[in-house]
Write a protein that binds this DNA or RNA. Sequence first.
DNA 1: CACGAAAGTCAACAGCCGTTGGCATATGCT
DNA 2: AGCATATGCCAACGGCTGTTGACTTTCGTG
Lengths: 183, 183
Amino acid sequence: MAERKSERTRAAILTAARERFGADGYERATVRAIAADAAIDPAMVIRYFGSKEKLFAEAAEFDIRIPDLSDVPADEVGARLVRHLVTRWEEEDTFRVLLRTAATNESAAERMRQIFASQLAPTLARLAVDQPALRAGLVATQALGFALCRYILQFPPVTALSADQAVAFLAPTITRYLTEPLS
Amino acid sequence: MAERKSERTRAAILTAARERFGADGYERATVRAIAADAAIDPAMVIRYFGSKEKLFAEAAEFDIRIPDLSDVPADEVGARLVRHLVTRWEEEDTFRVLLRTAATNESAAERMRQIFASQLAPTLARLAVDQPALRAGLVATQALGFALCRYILQFPPVTALSADQAVAFLAPTITRYLTEPLS
DNA sequence: CACGAAAGTCAACAGCCGTTGGCATATGCT
DNA sequence: AGCATATGCCAACGGCTGTTGACTTTCGTG
């Protein structure tokens, strides 16, 4: 069972990495600091993950896990979606890591675009009355803007919101973006 | 006229700095690269601005210049505001510099919060039916989310939008955040 | 117990970074 | 012209970065 120990430290590194990347962003989070948090030698980080960039790639793997909304009443879709997103964002650091980093790191931005294109857009496409890509894009602006103001920029009025309040305000916007007829 | 020349290079540095900061973010934009863009020695950058941080502070000075909307018909406030923001964001690099950097740099985030609190919130407060801080916060989530998806993450459906389309979609959301009764 | 591989330590590398001080040059004033 | 000062270049510093290779310890297995 020589591998048991190694998997534990591997997980420790990953946890520390997510914390540091999430708090400081990619550039300012140093391998040495991550190693210190995980109480191991910086060399081990490289040994386990090959490079800082590969470590980040693994630390920022994120599945948004959008539920199937196809048999949810049309007027509840927005609320269900918003609640799912907020829950999902707050139960892991991963998304925050990705969002924070995506602003200054092109590969993280690309990953963000991929999540949008492969996870969010297809699901929303079945709920939009027309122009699915455009409507998914609009939904993304509101969803990510909320995440930005709440978790990254930490605007006081936005951080002060409860999850319920957030859902109540954002849901109608999402619904409108998916269904409002184009003028 | 010894100062004329210096002011020209000072401006050149500032321009190059805004470009680099805007493209790469604070950490990855090096003093050396900025100096190279301005066709000048790295030492001059420090001589003129004292430090990289002070250079950034000056490069990221941004006045959102929100117009007086107090005598605009209530149903046009959203459109006017959105159009102003998009115009303002696109006529300078400054805002993009700030937004990109705010994700990983605490002092830039603080500046963002200040712009929100001292420039946006007070104006919106006079337009909101109640709970001015909360409503201004909601407006910010939609406005900044749009900027994030369009200028930073560059989601294709969002970059594809014309200014007119953006206004048409976002304006009703803004109006609703300012006026919709709380349930 | 002995052996070998896995896990971890340590020191050092080369390469950037922001910043500094000294020195050349140009420019404007008297 | 000659001086003072502003402007600019150059080389170098100390510090931090990701990454590497050699060495030591740990530990499961024959």
